[in-house]
């Protein structure tokens, strides 16, 4: 059954309420860079570069694949003081506009999606990170949601600096 949200419903933690459509903590940010779409795509599609642009990533290595759909990466990240290993898989790779990876481990399922569009001589990039948690870890969702704006700002600052460096 769907909870009857009115237009003025307060922003309660619906993602932890059983029986409700599981809306997941999600953050989306759009920014511009001086690098053209192809350069942005080539840099980001190789997810091992997360070592450079993602402040949470401690290490990220390609386990298998050629960089296209089906490529698998082993990512070790630090998140809210905890270190965890997440397996990322490229599920969409449409040069130069769309990159989509899923990340998974015992407690976590996530999506990292990048939309890249031509903008003047550079690009506009929309980065979306969606998080969902399994088992006991799902109670962390509200904490993650609260932390996301700060995390997003740091990530975007790093990402943008590295992309501008490609131009």
């Amino acid at each position: 059954m769907r909870r009857p949200y009115g237009v003025w419903a307060p922003p309660v933690a619906w993602w932890t309420t059983p029986g409700v459509m599981p809306v997941k903590p999600t953050v989306t940010r759009t920014f511009t860079t001086t690098a053209p779409p192809e350069a942005v795509y080539d840099y980001l599609c190789d997810f091992s570069h997360a070592e450079e642009w993602d402040p949470g990533t401690l290490s990220c290595e390609r386990v298998s694949g050629d960089g296209g759909v089906g490529t698998v990466y082993r990512n070790v990240s630090s998140f809210l003081g905890r270190t965890s290993e997440i397996t990322y898989t490229t599920v969409e790779a449409e040069r130069p506009t769309r990159i989509h990876l899923t990340g998974t481990n015992e407690q976590f399922d996530g999506h990292d999606v990048l939309g890249i569009r031509s903008h003047g001589t550079g690009s506009e990039v929309t980065y979306t990170a969606e998080f969902s948690f399994k088992g006991a870890a799902r109670f962390a969702a509200p904490v993650v949601a609260a932390y996301l704006p700060l995390l997003a700002r740091r990530t975007i600052d790093e990402l943008r600096a590295h992309l501008d460096g490609l131009a």
């Binding site: 009115g6 419903a9 997941k24 999600t26 989509h100 999506h111 979306t128 969606e130």
Partner: peptide, 10 residues
Amino acid sequence: IVPTTRAGEA
């Protein structure tokens, strides 16, 4: 306008 129409990335 309402959160229940938000699409997941999948």
